[in-house]
């Protein structure tokens, strides 16, 4: 179902956690709310879920405003950051919990819970208690529990942050696969731009309770709306020119003879070998950056090998005019 947020605001006393945001999430899309901690992304998710009251504005899910509805009446289900599995219930009973609350008969709810556990490949451990499961397994059970009542919208609060990096990438793939199979709307809160890029159809970058940019990942990366977005998603140099501010992708920075007519002199301050690419840190006295942070240039390993550089070397630095993307603020 479509989700629409209209002037959604959350105030705690004098502080405003979410400041009048407007957003449309199309039915069946994977949406990531991305931002640093304290930017209001989790509060937004909890307001959609119905676990947080709304100070002003509205949440519309499908055809109706859900302002005062209880979570279960909204057609949403939430997966909690710490999974919040019931420690006294087995996996099967955890998954069947929502059905039990709705008065589904025991045999029927066990059948459906087991079907859900199969979907997340946990059917073999149905009798275990949550404490006997690893983090990744707990997460699968939490996912099954959220999905068992056939929600139209699944809300995920930093679902991958408690996993180790290897597992995180695997679960990420699986979330995307599940979302494709089920065809329901996923809203996923994360502070990892990599996760947001990999998963979403719609990335919503938030900062200080406001939306900085809401677009598909490619647009966000190629045309960041603001300096904040360019910095937060990374891979960009934010440069202040006399008449405007621009973002230039680090992998489009040109060094040496190709650097073009507007090139400036720069000094190499850091060389990081990353396997397929080499990251260079550079300072250029003629280019104004935020707080004087070094510029980054990413070269392919082959290009770097053709013309190696070492810290202290001086080199010409520039970019094609078309690569400088103008920023709003």
């Amino acid at each position: 179902m479509d989700i629409e947020l209209a002037g959604l605001t959350k105030r705690y006393g004098a502080t405003t956690a979410v400041d009048g945001i407007d957003l449309k999430i199309r039915s069946g899309s994977y949406c990531c709310l991305l931002g640093p901690s304290g930017c209001g992304k989790t509060t937004t998710l909890r307001m959609i879920a119905g676990h947080e009251t709304v100070s002003a504005g509205d949440v519309v899910i499908g055809p109706r405003a859900v302002g005062d509805l209880a979570p279960a009446e909204r057609g949403t289900a939430m997966m909690f950051q710490s999974y919040a599995l019931f420690p006294h219930l087995t996996c099967r009973d955890n998954v069947a919990f929502g059905l039990r609350m709705r008065g589904v008969a025991k045999a029927e709810r066990h059948r459906r819970a087991e079907a859900m556990l199969r979907l997340v490949q946990m059917e073999a451990l149905a009798e275990r208690l949550p404490a006997q499961l690893s983090g990744g397994q707990q997460q699968r059970v939490a996912l099954a529990r959220a999905l068992v009542t056939s929600p139209k919208v699944l809300l995920l609060d930093e679902p991958l942050s408690a996993l180790d990096p290897f597992l995180r990438v695997r679960m990420r793939t699986e979330l995307k696969r599940l979302q494709g199979e089920l065809g329901i709307t996923f809203v996923h809160v994360t502070h990892s731009q990599e996760e947001a890029m990999a998963l979403s159809d719609l990335v919503v970058v938030m900062n200080a309770g406001r939306i900085e940019q809401a677009a598909d990942p490619r647009t966000v990366f190629e045309r960041p709306a603001t300096a904040f977005v360019a910095r937060f998603i990374g891979g960009h140099n934010v440069i202040t020119l006399p008449d405007r501010r621009v973002a230039v992708r680090a992998d489009r920075m040109l060094l040496g003879p190709e650097a073009g007519p507007e090139a400036v002199a720069a000094q190499v301050v850091a060389v990081e070998y990353q396997g397929s690419a080499v990251h260079l840190g550079l300072t250029a006295p003629d280019l104004v950056t935020d707080a004087g942070t070094p510029l980054t240039a990413i070269l392919s390993d082959r290009a770097f090998a053709a013309r190696p550089l070492r810290p202290g070397d001086t080199v010409r630095l520039g970019w094609q005019p078309g690569e400088a993307h103008r920023l709003d603020a």
Binding site: A49, H51, A70, P71, A72, A77, M78, F80, Q81, S82, A84, L85, F86, P87, F97, G98, R100, M101, R102, R145, A146, T149
Partner: peptide, 21 residues
């Protein structure tokens, strides 16, 4: 853990059901 109570509410449990289950 307070999030368990939220999880119960999210799954459609009434206050009374949360208490007993």
């Amino acid at each position: 853990d307070r999030s368990l109570l939220e999880a119960a509410r999210d799954a459609g449990a009434s206050d009374w059901q949360t208490l007993w289950t």
